[in-house]
Simulated assay, not measured.
Amino acid sequence: MKRKEYSAGMVKLSFWFSEFRKVIQLLNNGKTLPELKKMNLEENIFSAPTKARAIQIFNTVSTRVKCLDHSFFILFEQSDILNQKIIALAAVMESDSLFFDFVYEVYREKLIIGVDELADSDFGIFFKNKQLQSEKVAKWTDYTLKRLGNCYKTMLMEAGVLERATGTRKILKPILDKTLEDCLKANGMEITLNALTGVR
Rank of each mutant, 00 (worst) to 15 (best):
A52Q: 14
L132K: 15
S97A: 07
N187P: 07
D80C: 00
E94I: 04
P174R: 06
F99L: 14
T166I: 07
Y6G: 00
K136N: 10
L82R: 07
S121P: 12
G198Y: 11
C67I: 04
A88S: 03
C183F: 12
L89N: 00
L33V: 06
E163I: 04
L156A: 06
Q133P: 06
D182T: 07
H70K: 13
K2H: 14
R21A: 04
K128P: 13
V103Q: 02
G30Y: 10
M93G: 03
F100C: 04
L132T: 15
K110F: 03
G167D: 04
T50P: 11
K37R: 13
K170G: 00
T141P: 13
F72D: 01
M155T: 10
V115F: 05
E19V: 03
A159D: 06
K2I: 12
E117V: 06
K31A: 08
L82I: 03
L184G: 09
I74L: 03
C183I: 10
A8K: 14
K128I: 13
S79Y: 05
V61I: 12
D120I: 09
D69F: 07
C183L: 10
E5T: 07
L89E: 00
G124P: 02
K22P: 00
S62H: 08
Q133A: 10
L145M: 11
D182E: 15
K153L: 10
L145T: 08
E5K: 14
E109Q: 06
A186K: 15
I57T: 09
P34C: 08
A119V: 15
E42S: 02
F17T: 00
M93A: 02
S71P: 11
A90K: 01
V61N: 03
Q131M: 08
D122G: 02
E158Y: 14
L13A: 07
V23H: 03
S95Q: 00
V106P: 00
S62W: 09
V61W: 08
A90W: 05
M39P: 00
K31P: 04
H70W: 07
G198W: 11
A195S: 14
E77D: 11
E109H: 05
K170C: 00
S71W: 10
N187W: 13
D80W: 01
K178I: 14
K178H: 13
M39K: 04
R200C: 05
Q131R: 14
K31M: 10
